[in-house]
Design a protein around this nucleic acid. Structure first.
Length: 274
DNA sequence: ACCCAGGCCCCAG
DNA sequence: CTGGGGCATGGG
């Protein structure tokens, strides 16, 4: 057990990273976060250029989870030069405002389930659903500072849960999609190649997973930065920031998904400020 | 009460 | 192949 310290720079902001909408399984308490991972929870907080992570298990899991090994400064430079070259004002703004966000490496199965449930839904309710599934069905209960927390259920924990049971828990018409996906999970998992085009097709062959959800799973679960999810917010961006101004949204050859996350964050923040 | 949410399926043209 | 209606539910 321990508290681990990491030197970070302006390319890491724990607040933006967790609250930008990519992750649903965490709690907030006075700028401290309790984050749920695959087989562990951690307490995490930031004091300017130092990140603190507390876990009673393997710290390396969290180094990976938070992408602390990635050199975001180089990615940001690449995206900036792309945006400048394209003369894309909104992209330039989004890179400035989104700076600090990192794409997390979230658990595969949980990410799939989370984004299946995310469709036609709002973020507070998605979070409730994830916690509800964890509290009802998880076999993984882990400790931190004398308290216990339920990680997201394993595939086997959910295998014999019926569609009707999911409906009772308020998952609505997504219950059918979730139940079918779970029963197909072993088959799906074996076929993941961690190559965007292949995994995108694989995911979309599941009922209830369309372009948007497949892209989110590729990006937030499989670390495939070519994925570029287009949801209601991105549609709004394309309309208001590009088409209305006679422009066209262009996407970089690399790290498109990271740029997308910056744009999503920027547009959503804009609305919150009003 | 009302609108909307990190959409998708399905069917009509 | 594209467009639009319907869908369950609850957050704000």
């Amino acid at each position: 057990m321990g508290i681990y310290k990491f030197d970070i720079d302006s390319t890491f902001d724990i607040n933006k990273t967790l609250e930008c909408g990519q992750c649903f399984h965490y709690l907030v308490n006075n700028d401290e976060y309790l984050v749920y991972g695959y087989n562990d929870v951690c307490r995490v907080w930031q004091e300017s250029d130092v990140l603190f992570i507390q876990t009673e298990r393997d710290i390396n899991y969290w180094v990976n989870y938070f992408s602390l090994d990635m050199k975001y400064i180089e990615i940001l430079r690449y995206l900036e030069s792309f945006a400048v070259k394209e003369n894309d004002d909104f992209a330039i703004k989004a890179i400035q405002e989104g700076k600090g966000i990192r794409i997390l490496r979230q658990p595969f199965f949980e990410t799939c389930c989370s984004y299946i449930l995310s469709q036609q839904n709002n973020i507070p309710r998605i979070k409730k659903m994830i916690f509800s599934l964890s509290d009802c069905f998880s076999s993984i209960n882990v400790s931190l500072n004398g308290r216990f927390y339920n990680c997201f259920p394993k595939y086997a924990d959910l295998l014999n849960v019926s569609e009707d049971r999911f409906k009772e828990l308020g998952m609505g018409y997504r219950s059918e999609y979730l139940e079918k996906f779970i029963h197909n999970w072993e088959n799906t998992f074996d076929k993941i190649k961690f190559k965007y085009e292949d995994d995108f097709k694989l995911l979309k062959s599941n009922k209830g997973i369309g372009d948007k959800v497949a892209n989110c799973i590729c990006l937030y679960g499989f670390e495939e930065y070519d994925a570029f999810p287009i949801d209601v917010w991105m549609k709004r961006i394309i309309q208001e920031e590009y088409q209305n101004k006679g422009k066209e949204l262009k996407i970089p050859d690399k790290y498109a998904g990271i740029l997308q996350q910056f744009m999503f964050y920027t547009k959503r923040n804009e609305k919150k400020m009003k």
